[in-house]
Amino acid sequence: MYKALSLAVLTALAPLAAAQSVNNLRIMAPASPGGGWDQTSRAIQTVLQNEGLARPVQVFNVPGAGGTIGLAQLYNSKGDGSLLMTMGLVMVGAIQTNSSKVDLSRVTPIARLTGEYEVVVVPAASPYKTMKDLAAAWKTNPGSVAFAGGSAGGTDHMLVGLLAQAAGVDPKRMNYVPFSGGGETLAAVLGNQVAAGVAGYGEFEAQIKAGRLRAIGISAPKRQAGIPVPTLREQGYNVDLSNWRGIVAPPGISAQEKAALVAAMDKLHASKAWKDTLAERKWTDLYLSGSKFDVYLKLEANRTKNVLRDIGLVK
């Protein structure tokens, strides 16, 4: 009798035990090295491994088309419970602007992790000292003021479009130069190939502190601790936008596999190591996991489509 009872208890606990273990995990960063998704993927990798939540963890890059090439590869990996992909608002927009055959209704949502406000930067020697200086030149001749940022339809592109509206510039006339990785955007700004660049603060922080770039505005609703940059709002532009990032898995994974991945992210989020990472990189904690993230993704897809339509990026 006791043997049978013990067997029954072990059987009942087996799914729970399995749900706590994630091995041989791979995380896809669907962009070039150096950008926000790559940084986020490698930060997750470090904390998961150091906290013993998953081992080993490999990060690999699949750049192109605002992440939709990586999204298609994830979709084609149906049922692979050891594969994750970092994604975010950039991808939500790129799906629509690239008319992607695969959208986020085809993946398994795991968690929304962080948000990061966008900054507008210019080279240190630029004549534009403030956002108002830049906007004045922009309004006079929209095509002559080029902005560098991430892929077409992504967060950076949306912010420039919203800024154009706020500055009285026709978004359809703006000169936006898209790049697939943050390193390329940075090079374009430092090389004076464009008038300004847009990205998350973390991607420009080192160069701002080194004095090679000047940040003239941040897309936060209020000033951010540790970031001495005036908001766009306080300069007269009613614009704020957060570039959130999250994690999804392929479609067709089992409920047990999904539970294990969500549990790993929950533990990552609760760890001191992750809190230290957020503070160090100045990422805003926007954690949301499981079914709540699933609902959020659906709402975000609708919101993004409306924004892109308003600024003329999609019909």
Rank of each mutant, 00 (worst) to 15 (best):
V145Y: 11
G182E: 02
R173Y: 00
S180G: 14
N141H: 13
V177M: 10
G182I: 02
Q165A: 05
P171G: 07
A167V: 09
S151W: 12
H157P: 03
T140Q: 14
R173K: 15
V177S: 10
A167G: 08
M131R: 08
L134H: 13
A164M: 02
D133Q: 14
G150M: 03
K172M: 13
W138F: 11
G149V: 08
A137V: 01
G143D: 14
T155R: 01
P127C: 01
T185V: 15
S180Q: 15
G149T: 13
E184I: 04
P171W: 02
A148I: 05
L134Q: 10
A124W: 00
E184Y: 07
Q165Y: 04
N175L: 10
A124H: 00
T185D: 06
V121E: 01
M158S: 08
S151R: 03
A152H: 14
S144G: 10
T140M: 06
W138I: 07
M158Q: 07
S126C: 09
A135P: 14
A148H: 11
W138V: 11
G154H: 12
A187S: 03
A148W: 13
V121L: 04
R173F: 01
K129M: 03
N175K: 09
A187G: 03
E184R: 00
V121D: 02
D133R: 10
K172I: 02
K129T: 09
A136V: 13
A152C: 04
T155H: 01
D133H: 13
A146W: 05
G143V: 03
K132Y: 10
V121G: 04
L159N: 04
A187F: 00
A135G: 10
P123K: 04
G143C: 08
L163A: 06
V177T: 13
Y128Q: 07
H157Q: 04
V122F: 12
K172F: 12
P142C: 08
T130S: 15
G150R: 01
E184S: 08
S144V: 03
Q165F: 02
S180I: 07
L163I: 12
D156H: 00
A148L: 04
P178K: 02
K132S: 15
T130K: 06
G143F: 05
F179G: 06
M158E: 06
M158K: 04
G183C: 00
R173W: 00
F179W: 06
K139F: 02
F179I: 10
G154W: 09
A148T: 13
V145M: 14
V121W: 07
L162H: 06
F147Q: 11
V122A: 11
P127T: 01
Y176P: 14
A125N: 08
G182N: 08
F179E: 05
A152F: 14
L134N: 10
L159E: 07
V177G: 14
V177L: 12
G181Q: 02
Y128R: 12
N141D: 15
L163V: 09
M131I: 14
